[in-house]
Amino acid sequence: MSQAVRIGNEYLTVDVSPLGAEMQGLKTRDGRDWLWNGDAQYWTGRSPVLFPIVGKAPDDHIEIDGRVYPMAQHGFARRTTFDLAASTPTMCRFELKASDVTRAVYPFDFLLAVEHAVDGTRLTVAAEVENHGETDMPFGIGFHPAFLWPLPGGEGKPHQVVLDNGAEPALSQLEGGFIPHTLMDSPFEGGRLTLRPDMFKADALIFPQGAGEGLTYGAEGGPQLHFTFENLPNLALWQKVGAPFLCVEPWHGMAARAGAGAELSARPSTTVLVAGEKARFAFTVEMPA
C-alpha cells in the first residue's frame, strides 16, 4: 500500500492514508495530535468514510431489486485502497471507482471521491458520489472521525457537545445494531450535552434529525472544536466505553430499521442518485489556533 499523503499549512498538518482515504493524524502547529491514534486495544479506526451503507445490515446482507448481496457494517470503502487523484500542499483527493470486486457486492458504476483540504485553522473533509451508470443508485454515506477525549489541554475538565441551533433532538439507541421505530427523549438540554462514558453503554447516541448544521465539542474552560455540516442531516456520538476518544459522526444514512428487511433503498435517510448525477457531503472542523 502507498504511504499516507501529508498536507498542511502554518496551522495544521493532516495525514491521509490511501486505505479508505482515511485521515490518520490532525496536528496543530504546537505539535499536538487531536485525532485518535487507532490503538487496537479499543478501536483501530481513526476517521473512516462509510459507504455505501452506514451501520449494520440484517445478517450482513443488503437487497437491491430483489437480489441479495453481502455487505459488512459501514460498507466496503473503509477497507478499500483509493487512488490518489490530485494533491497540493494544502489538499489531497482520493478516488474509488467501481470495479468487478465492488460490483459483486454493490452492482453500480460509481465514483467516490474523498478530499481533505486545510484553510487557515479549518479542515474540510468532503465526499462526492457520482452515478456513472444508467439506473438509480441508492446509498448511504457518513463520516466517523474520532477525536481525543479528553482533548489536549482539556485534561480533568468536563467535555460537552453544544449544538449551534440550541435544539433538543430526539434520541435513537440501537437495538441489536438496528434503528428502532420509536424515539427517546433528548439527552440535550437547551442544545447542551455534558458527556459521560456511561452514556455509551448501549452503543452510539444517534440523532436522526434536528441536530442541525453545526456543533462545538470541547472542554469547559478549555479547547473547543467547532464543526459545520453540509448535506449531513443525521448525527451520532460514540465512544468505545472507557476509550479516550469521542466520535462525532455526521451521516446521510443510517443502519437498517429493526425488522424492516434488507432493502437498501428502504434504509433511513438513503440517498437515491439518478443516472449521471452527483452529490456532495462534507464537514468542516475549526481547530484551535
Rank of each mutant, 00 (worst) to 15 (best):
A4P: 08
G8L: 08
G20F: 02
E22G: 03
R32C: 11
L35A: 04
I53G: 02
H74D: 14
G75S: 04
R79W: 05
F82T: 13
F82Y: 04
A85S: 14
T90K: 04
E95H: 04
L96F: 08
A98W: 14
R103L: 02
L111N: 00
E115Y: 01
A117Y: 07
R122A: 11
N131F: 01
I141C: 09
H144T: 11
F147P: 03
G156N: 10
V161G: 00
L163K: 15
L163Y: 09
A167Y: 01
P169Q: 01
Q173C: 07
M184F: 08
M184I: 12
D185S: 15
F188V: 11
F188I: 02
P208D: 09
A211N: 05
T216Y: 02
A219V: 08
E220K: 10
G221E: 07
H226G: 03
T228A: 08
N231V: 05
P233Q: 08
A243I: 01
F245Y: 15
L246I: 15
W251C: 05
H252R: 14
A255I: 13
A258V: 05
A260D: 10
E263I: 05
R267D: 00
R267I: 02
K278E: 10
F283L: 11
T284P: 08
E286C: 11
A289Y: 05
